[in-house]
Design a protein around this nucleic acid. Structure first.
Lengths: 217, 217
DNA sequence: CTATATAATGCCAGTGACTGGCAGTTCTTG
DNA sequence: CAAGAACTGCCAGTCACTGGCATTATATAG
C-alpha cells in the first residue's frame, strides 16, 4: 500500500525536510492502521515505532504524545481553519464569519484528509483517551481563535467578554456537529458525501444558537 | 493544623466510612499544601502519599489520577451544581435556570470550600496539566447537564441540537467567568468577597451571550 | 571534492504515573 | 466471638515520556 500521495508543497524542499515529512506521514499512516486494528490502548508506542521503522526518540521529536499522532487529521483541519479565518474579511456578524469559514475549510480539505479524518473520528468515538484529547484540542483552538479575534476587532478579550464567548460558541458548535455526525455515520465508507453531511451539521449547530437562548420547557 | 471541620453528614456514618472520609480529606489537604509549596509537577505521588501517610495503592482507590486530588474542590462544586439543577423547577428560559442555579450553588458552597477553591484555581492558573484537566472536567459536566435536560424537557438531545448547545454554552460561560475571575484575583486572600465576584462574573458571562451572536466588527 | 559545521537520529538508562494480585488487617454482623 | 466482607499495604510490573550522548546524514565552505 503506497502512502498518501505527496502534496505539492513537498517538491523542491531540502532533502532533509522531505525525509522528515515522509517519516511523519509514515507514522500517521501506520498509527491509524494499528490503532484501528488492535485498538489505541492495546497498541504500545514500541509496536508503532517498530512497525514504522522509526526510533521512539524520533517519534517524540515529531509528536508531543501518543494521542497527537492519532489525531493528526484533526490538527490539520484546525491549522487550515485558523489560517483561513485569520485571512477572512469579516463582513456580517462575527458568528457568521466563524461558521462560514469553518464550513468552507471542511469542504476544501481534500480526498486523502477525508479518509484519514473518518478513520480518526471512529477511533475517537470508541477511545476515551482520544475523546478527551480531542476536546482539549478544540479548547486550544478556541484560545487561538480569540487571539485572532482580538487582532481583527482590535479589542482586548479582557474588556469584552464577548470575544471569548464567541470562541467558545464556535467550538461548542463544532463539538455538537462532530458528535451528531459520527453518531449517524458509524461506517468507514463513503468519503465525499459524509464530509458534506459534516459541513451541514456544523451549519445547523451554529444556526441553532439563537433559538437556544430562548428555549423554555 | 486541624483538618477542615467535619461536615455534619459525617456523623453517624459507619466507622469505616468515616475513616475513609478522613483519609480522603487528609489527602486533599496535604496535596494542596504540597502542590502550592513545591508546585504540581515537582511533587511526586510518593511525596504526597508519604506525607499523608497513606499507601500509594490506597490513593488510587480514592482518586482516579494525580490531577483529581488537586481539583477536588472543583468536583465538589460540580456535584453540588448538578444536584441543584436536577431539582430545580425551570420556570423561565432554560438558560436563565442554568445561570441562576450556578450562581446560587457558588454562593452556597461554604467557608472551607472557598478557601480550597481559591488555592486550587491559583494552582490551575500556573499548571498546564491542571488547566487541561479542569477543562476536561467542565466538558464532562456539560455531558451530565445534557442528560438532566433530556429528562427535564423529555426530549432527546439527538433530535434537538439545542439541548447540547445549551450545555455547551453554560459551561463556556463558566470557563469565561473563571478565567476572568482568576486574572483579576491573583492573591490568595479574601474569601467571601472573591466568591461574590466569581458569582458576578458568571452572571455577566451568561448575560453576554445574546449580544455575542449579533456582534459585528 | 574534501573538510567542517549543522542537524537529525538512534540508543540507553532513567523517572514517575498507574495497575493487578495477594497477603494481612480492620470493621461488621449473625 | 467467629465468619465474612471490605479495606489497606506491599511488590513487581507496564508504559508513556525525557535527558544525554555517540553516530550518521545532510548542508556548506574552501
Amino acid at each position: 500500500m503506497p502512502t498518501s500521495p505527496a502534496p505539492l508543497a513537498e517538491r523542491s524542499l531540502p532533502l532533509r525536510e522531505r525525509k522528515k515529512l515522509r517519516a511523519r506521514r509514515e507514522l500517521v499512516e501506520t498509527a491509524l492502521r494499528l490503532f484501528l486494528d488492535r485498538g489505541f490502548d492495546e497498541t504500545t508506542l514500541n509496536d508503532l515505532t517498530e512497525a514504522a521503522d522509526v526510533s521512539l526518540r524520533t517519534f517524540f521529536r515529531m509528536f508531543p504524545s501518543k494521542e497527537a499522532v492519532a489525531l493528526a487529521a484533526e490538527s490539520e483541519l484546525w491549522d487550515a481553519y485558523l489560517e483561513q479565518f485569520a485571512r477572512y474579511d469579516i463582513d456580517g456578524t462575527v458568528l457568521d464569519a466563524l461558521r462560514d469559514t469553518l464550513v468552507t475549510t471542511i469542504a476544501n480539505m481534500g480526498e486523502d484528509w477525508t479518509r484519514r479524518f473518518l478513520a480518526t473520528r471512529g477511533l475517537v468515538a470508541r477511545t476515551p483517551a482520544l475523546r478527551d484529547h480531542s476536546d482539549l484540542t478544540s479548547i486550544t483552538v478556541q484560545r487561538r481563535l480569540v487571539e485572532i479575534l482580538e487582532t481583527k476587532l482590535d479589542t482586548d478579550s479582557r474588556t469584552d467578554v464577548r470575544l471569548r464567548q464567541l470562541g467558545e460558541i464556535a467550538l461548542a458548535s463544532w463539538r455538537c456537529a462532530a458528535k451528531n455526525w459520527i453518531r449517524d455515520n458509524p461506517g468507514p465508507r463513503g468519503g465525499k458525501a459524509k464530509v458534506a453531511r459534516l459541513a451541514r451539521e456544523v451549519r445547523e449547530a451554529f444556526d441553532a444558537i439563537p433559538a437556544c437562548i430562548t428555549l423554555r420547557p
